[in-house]
Structure formats: C-alpha cells, structure tokens
Design a protein around this nucleic acid. Structure first.
Length: 555
RNA sequence: GGUCUGUUGGUGAAGCGGUUAACACAUAACCCUCUCAAGGUUACAUCCAUGGGUUCGAUCCCCAUACAGACUACCA
C-alpha cells in the first residue's frame, strides 16, 4: 500500500526533490527578541492600494514596529487573472507614499530582500508541491478528477435537497477512488486538482481565539478543499497561507473579516502538519454608504475617494492620513493624541483589544479635519517645502511662483501661525492656494471685488483716498489700528463697536465696515487673515498700487 | 439553504451588570472680535435594532426576531 501511495505521489509531483525537513532547515526560526511580532501584507499584484488595504497594511506595519519585529511584503499572485503589469511597483509606491516600507520581502517588481523568500507565490511552486506530496504520502490528500460541470451538478443537487453545499463526505466522489484507479487516470493524462482528505467532522466544535474578537466557535472543517489547482498547479490561498506563514514564521496573521469563515480550514491544515499556529486578528472592513443608503465594502473601482492616489493628488499630508488611519484602527488613539500632541505616533502602541470588530464608515470630513489640524501645527517652512513638493507634481505654475518668492511665501504661511492658537484654514496642500493667491501679484488680475455693506463708489473712494493720504505708517500694530479708528471718527463711522451697537443710527457704519473696504480693496476678499499682517507683508508700494487699481475698477 | 460576524446620536465611537450613556467630527446658537479661520460657552441619543428572559438592578449576560455584512470557487 505504501509503495502504491509513493507511486501516486511521484506521479502527481514528479519534480519534487526535497522534503519538508529540508525546508525547515532552510528557513529556521527567526532570531528575534521575546514578543517581537512578525506580520505581513500580502496583496495580489493589482497595482493599486485603496484605503481599506492601506489600513490593513498600516496595521500590520505598526503591529510589527511596535515590538521591533518584522513586517514583510509577500505577493499573492496565485490567481494569474488578477495580476497586472508592474503591479508590484504600484503597490510599493503607494505604500512608500505613506512611509510604509517593508523590512523584508518584495522591494521591486522582481527584487526582494530577506532570507525567507521567494516572497512571490508563483515562484514557490516547488515548496507547495513538497508539502502537498507529503500529504498524499500520508493518505491525507488525493487527486480529484471532477470537472467543473460535475461540481456544478452536485451543488445543484445539494441546493435542491437543502443540504450543505460543498465537496465533502459522500459528495466527494474522488475521495473513494482507489489508489490504483487514481494512478491509472493520471497515466491516462486526465487533469486533476489536489484535494485535502479532510479528517474533520462537522459535528465537532473548534475554537478560534481571535485577538480582536475573542473566542468564536466553529464546526470542524470537513470540506475536501482544493490545495493545488489543476491548470497552473499553483496553490489556493488556504494552502499557501499554511505553507508561507509557517515557513516565514509569521506570528500574527492580520486580515479582513472575510477570512473568518475559512478559519476552520486553516486550523485543520496547521493541525495536520503539527505546525505552531499563528495568532489571528480579523479586522473590520472599511465601509461606505452607497447610493441606496446601505453599507458596503469600500470599492476602489466605484469610490474615487477610496483610492490612495486621490489623497496624494488632493495633497492631504501623509501624516494626516496616518493619523486618520490610527483613529480608525484603535479607538483609544484620539485620546492618546490629545494627551500627547507633540509625541511621535511611533510611541503609540497598537492594541488589538481596541480594534473595532465592526466595519467602520470611511469619513472623509473627519480626515480633512485631521489634516487641517495637522497642517496648523507645522512651521511655515515645513508648509512651504511640502507644498512646493506637491505643486511641482500637480500645479507647475504655482510651483514656479513659490520658487521665485520663497521668503515671501514663507512669511505668508506664517501669518497667525506662531500664535498660541494658530490659524486653521488649510485643509490640504491643494487648498492652500485658495487662501493665499491674492498675496501674489502673479495671480492678482481679472479681479472681482466683493464689497459688502459699504459698496458705493463714493464711500469706497472716500475711505481709500483718506487712507492713502494719511495712514500708511505700518511700524506698529496698535498705532496702526488707532489710526484706523481715527479715520472712522473723521468719516462718520463708529470706532467703538459697543457704541455702534448702542446707537447704530448715529453712524454710517463701524470699524468692521471700514476694515472690510480696505481688505476687499487689497485682496478682493471679505475673509482673510489679519489685515495688519497682510498690509505689512505687501508693503506701502503695493498697498498704494492695489488701492489705485481698485479705485480705477470702480463704476 | 448552511456557517460565522456585526447592530450605541447625522458620522467615527467609549463603555463589558449600578454612569447625568465619555470623547471626537459634523450641525446650530451665543460670546470674543476689524472680516474669516480659530478659541470659549451651550444645545443635540426620553436612552444603546426589536421582543422576551435572568437579576434587587442590563446598553452590557441568555434566547428569539429583524436588518446588514462575510464565507459557502481550481478568487484572494
């Protein structure tokens, strides 16, 4: 009998020359300090990362970094249909934009680092076959010759009889083939997949100790799942998970909750080989509300705001995206940030217990709020440098202006920035121009002045000429503002808001109205940062020039 | 059909047998103020999907139901 099994196994895997023991020797236990986690991000090479997978990559990365462990990138390309040209570089690039750089694994389209490779599944075929062959030898796997048509048929029967669907028990036709029959079929050149001969019983219970969800009870797996596919002889996810995560010594398998249901399969596989089981963390999916008002998994196809590239284009600082991801990842993160506003987030340790089991809604406005707060905490020089970097990629004209006016631009970004409570008006790098364009002469043309309450030609002329003739001294803010008040008094506007509120009918308006005229004449906008600072930055000549320009524009 | 998961305000959520049901975002009002952005104050869940049960007492435990999601592929 054993000889027969050997003949069958050799026939099924003619190219296997090594044994499991050989591989165990090649990939020894990692030499890491106690408690160090080994995690991995294992995408298909589709070329893109969306917020959902970025979150999971970041969680993997963080979980490893928190313990001085290893985070590696493995490419799961066992489904060739999903692979895309240059898919790995695309992923690497998206990750790198968010400072997620693997310690090990793929670092380019074909390059990798680390001692536990290959890190791309299509190149590990011999390894998978070695493990599968071992199973055949032990009578725990067998070739299955069922066609997809036959499989469909049994499923239909099962549906009709309201029986559990799947390849198991008496529905597993090829399970009962004798070894001789199997050998004969292979010799006849029949196509086959390799299936697990599951030793499980559906009535037995097993327990998953999930790191984020706690204990979950399942029936034991009794499905004879496919281990090796027929056409390309590549493994299925289940089998690759077993082989790779064992040989690469992954300690924590963090994956989306869509994998929970296959835990019994994975548990059984580890059990059969007697391998140490990794810890599992099944993460909630990132969701969004779709047109029909129902929640669904974020899709990179349908949701442009889900693509990581979108935020790159929008110029949301990567740090802000990371802060947002952390607030989704761990419910206690926001509180931590509040208490440690100036501490680097690498000091924050992920806590599996604080991860949400239910999928969280992707909240764009919250992301922008975080971005706004983050930008308000940066120095003007940092803003300048990052904005320039962004503009070089997405707004050449602005980049040139920034380069030609570096010193001035930094001063503009510094308006009300060094206050105890700095301004918070930039949402993202792409938003900055909306707030500062009027400071640059290059943009100060084709203007529409937005005068409000005081809008007659006569009054505007009155105010501007009075200002031009008397009040250009900008050496001190208090002196300057007192002069504005003086001007109000002489022109019939209230210089004191309280007086104005008591008897508005006694005045043409108040200081605010006068300031607004000055502000609009200078910037065309009613809403800008501190008027004195703007005037100071523009300087006397430009103020004159712009006021004159405004006067000529009236009519 | 089967297996499993989830359900706390507009949103993200804390809470794990006794709380006024945290906090943050959003929204609204007021204050401050030369406008805006901030900042300050306040408001916002008659109550934790629904119905039963256990308990002196339940958002927290149990059971049903509803709804949503995942898996049930030679996709991952």
């Amino acid at each position: 009998m054993n000889d027969k099994l050997k003949e069958l196994a050799d026939l099924m895997f003619p190219n296997v020359t090594k044994t499991i023991a050989d591989y165990e020797k090649m990939y020894p236990e990692r030499n890491l300090k106690e408690g160090a986690r080994v995690t991995r991000f294992a995408p298909s090479p589709t070329g893109f990362v969306h917020m959902g997978s970025l979150l999971s990559a970041y969680e993997d990365y963080k979980a490893a970094k928190d313990t001085d462990g290893i985070f590696y990138l493995r490419i799961e390309d066992t489904d060739q249909k999903r692979s895309v040209e240059n898919g790995i570089s695309g992923i690497l690039n998206d990750l790198k934009n968010f400072d997620i750089v693997p310690d090990e694994g793929m670092i380019g389209e074909t390059e990798s680092i680390g001692e536990y490779g290959p890190y791309i599944q299509s190149e590990r075929q011999e390894i998978y076959h070695t493990f599968a062959k071992d199973l055949v030898l032990r009578g725990l796997a067998y070739p299955c010759f069922c066609t997809s048509h036959e499989l469909d048929e049994t499923r239909e029967i099962q549906e009709l009889n309201k029986e559990r669907i799947g390849y198991y028990g008496s529905f597993a036709k090829c399970r009962s083939l004798t070894v001789d029959e199997a050998i004969q079929k292979i010799k006849n050149g029949e196509e086959f997949v390799v299936r697990l001969k599951s030793p499980g019983n559906f009535n037995n219970k097993i327990m998953l100790h999930d790191e984020v969800r706690g204990d979950i009870e399942f029936p034991e797996n009794d499905l004879d799942i496919v281990l090796i596919k027929s056409t390309d002889k590549l493994p299925t996810y289940h089998f690759a998970h077993l082989v790779d995560d064992h040989l690469m010594h992954t300690t924590h398998v963090m994956r989306g909750e869509e994998w929970i249901a296959s835990f019994p399969i994975h548990d059984q596989l580890f059990e059969i080989f007697g391998f140490a089981k990794p810890k599992y963390c099944h993460l909630g999916l990132v969701m969004k509300i779709d047109e029909n008002g129902t929640r669904r998994k974020l899709s990179k196809r349908k949701d442009p705001e889900a693509s990581v590239e979108f935020y790159h284009q929008q110029g949301v600082p990567i740090e802000a995206v990371k802060l947002y991801l952390l607030t989704i990842a761990n419910s206690n993160f926001e509180e931590w940030l509040d208490n440690n506003p100036n501490t680097d987030t690498s000091e924050f340790k992920l806590d599996f217990k604080k991860m949400s089991a239910s999928g969280s809604l992707f909240d764009v406005s919250k992301l922008f709020n975080i971005s706004k707060n983050y930008l308000s905490r940066q120095t003007a020089t940092t803003i300048y440098n990052n904005l320039l970097k962004w503009a070089l990629e997405f707004d050449q004209e602005f980049a040139t202006i920034l380069k030609n006016n570096q010193e001035f631009a930094i001063k503009v970004f510094n308006i009300e920035r060094e206050n105890p409570k700095p301004r918070k008006d930039y949402l993202s790098y792409s938003d900055i121009k909306n707030h500062v364009w009027y400071m640059f002469d290059e943009y100060f043309h084709d203007l529409t002045y937005d005068f409000q309450k005081v809008n007659t030609k006569e009054e505007i002329t009155n105010i501007l000429t009075t200002y031009l003739n008397n009040y250009l001294d900008l050496s001190d803010k208090d002196i300057w503002f007192n002069k504005i008040k003086e001007m109000c008094d002489t022109l019939g506007y209230a210089s004191n808001m309280k007086d104005y509120k008591k008897n508005p009918e006694n005045y043409k308006g108040n200081v605010a109205d006068v300031s607004t005229v000055l502000r609009v004449a200078l910037t065309t906008k009613t809403n800008t940062p501190d008027l004195y600072e703007i005037m100071n930055l523009l300087g006397e000549d430009k103020i004159k020039e712009r006021f004159t320009k405004c006067l000529n524009n009236l009519d």
